[in-house]
Amino acid sequence: MSLILGLFEAQMLVLAAAIIGRGGMTRRSLGALLIVLCGVLTPFTIGYAGFYDRWPWLSFAPFAVPLAIGPLLYVHLNGLIFDRPIPRWHAALPVAQFAYQAVAFCMPLDLRGAFDRQVQRPWLDPILAALLLASMVGYAVAALRALRRHRCWLVARRSNLAAARRVRAVLIAYAAIVTVRTGYLIADALIAPLSYFDMFGFYVVLAVVGNYMAIEGWRQADARPHPIVEPIERDWRPIAAAWMDRIEAHGWWRDPDLDLAELSRRLGTNTAYLSRGLNEGLGLGFAEAINGLRVEHVAARLRDGTDGDILTLAIDAGFGSKATFNRVFKERFGVTPSTYRRVSTVKNDAERPDLQRNT
């Protein structure tokens, strides 16, 4: 018995180390899950070999933390499906279980034996079994919901479903552990109490499933996960305003060949991001934003009383045609460029005598 479980454990540990060494949240979480499965197997691997009889002080050694199985599986699947970690409170029960075992392991051996007979077996073991079952089933249900959401997201975008199949394979393997564990708990409660050796079948299943997950995890270590990409809510106004400041400062609006792709490259972003930022931040399209800067420049020159030809000013500002310039200018100021110049000239002439009298 010990040899069989020990061989399974050794292979899992080697693959876990190799998977963790590849880096990344999903790989590290899978490696940690495999190590926890090995820890759950360890008390039985060394127990069947007689370690506890020969070295009684090993009792309560915190090898097994089964309450960590569900959270680590959920961390792994959450990384594959959403590419993000889970809240830290999921670690509360596993940490509490490990801490409890560590404290009990530090107790004197005689006290440990009395505590095991009077408290651990009659009271704490049933509570732990119920918590473990609830944890495993709860995380299985949560993972199943996430898998369905992932599949629907991939189907809606006509994406390859290989990523969803990898997630499903992990979930099926986990479901096998939950199902067999539930069967043993029912048999223990309703048929007859199970002994230490009666549980060997469950731990063989655990070892086989763990090795399957390890081998598949190693094989798929470099596969593209294709997680769900959620839309990010942003305040586009300051982002768009900063873009406009850069465009104006560099004079990029003067370039008659400027288009959305070229401006995106100069700003260090992409066309979709730039277009959305201008629309949601300023309520403007690309052409409206750039032509707005151009007509403001021409209008400022006209207000300054320049004698230059209006069409030349428009071309210098980046407009490609007179018709486009006249249309944009009239939409912006409500009058034609020539009328705007005439009104500005009259206004400047009216203000000039006042300035001379003041001087």
Rank of each mutant, 00 (worst) to 15 (best):
T269G: 01
A187S: 14
R151A: 06
C152E: 15
T345M: 10
F98E: 01
R237F: 10
F60Y: 14
G292S: 10
F329M: 02
D354C: 06
I247E: 05
I19W: 07
I290D: 01
G183A: 09
A173F: 07
P225D: 07
V204T: 13
F333S: 04
S275V: 07
A223R: 12
V205E: 07
C152A: 13
A289N: 04
G70T: 01
G31W: 02
G217L: 08
A314C: 08
Y74S: 03
L293S: 01
G334L: 05
P62M: 03
A104E: 04
L37S: 10
R151M: 03
I315C: 13
Y340C: 02
M199R: 14
L293W: 03
R219K: 15
R219H: 12
L260V: 13
E248M: 12
V170G: 09
G31I: 04
T339G: 08
I310T: 08
A92S: 10
V229F: 05
I290T: 04
R224D: 13
D198S: 15
L33C: 09
R254D: 00
L124S: 02
I186R: 08
W243P: 03
N291C: 05
D245V: 15
T182I: 14
L274P: 03
L111Q: 14
A272W: 13
G31C: 06
G281R: 02
R342P: 00
G281K: 02
F115R: 03
A207N: 04
G251F: 08
F197Q: 14
L302D: 03
P66Q: 01
A189Y: 12
V328F: 03
R237G: 12
P87Y: 05
I4Y: 08
G21F: 11
A68D: 00
D125P: 00
A249T: 09
D316M: 11
G283F: 05
I69P: 01
G113P: 00
H226G: 06
S264V: 06
L144S: 14
A176W: 12
A140C: 14
V65D: 01
F319M: 02
I239T: 13
G70W: 00
P337F: 02
D53R: 13
T45Y: 00
R224W: 10
P87G: 04
V229G: 01
L111D: 14
L41H: 05
R294E: 04
P337R: 01
A162E: 13
L258A: 05
Y184I: 06
A32T: 09
I46T: 11
D304Q: 11
M107C: 08
T182Q: 11
I215T: 15
S338N: 12
E233Q: 12
R28H: 13
R149D: 10
V208H: 05
G251E: 09
R266T: 09
A261H: 12
A134Q: 04
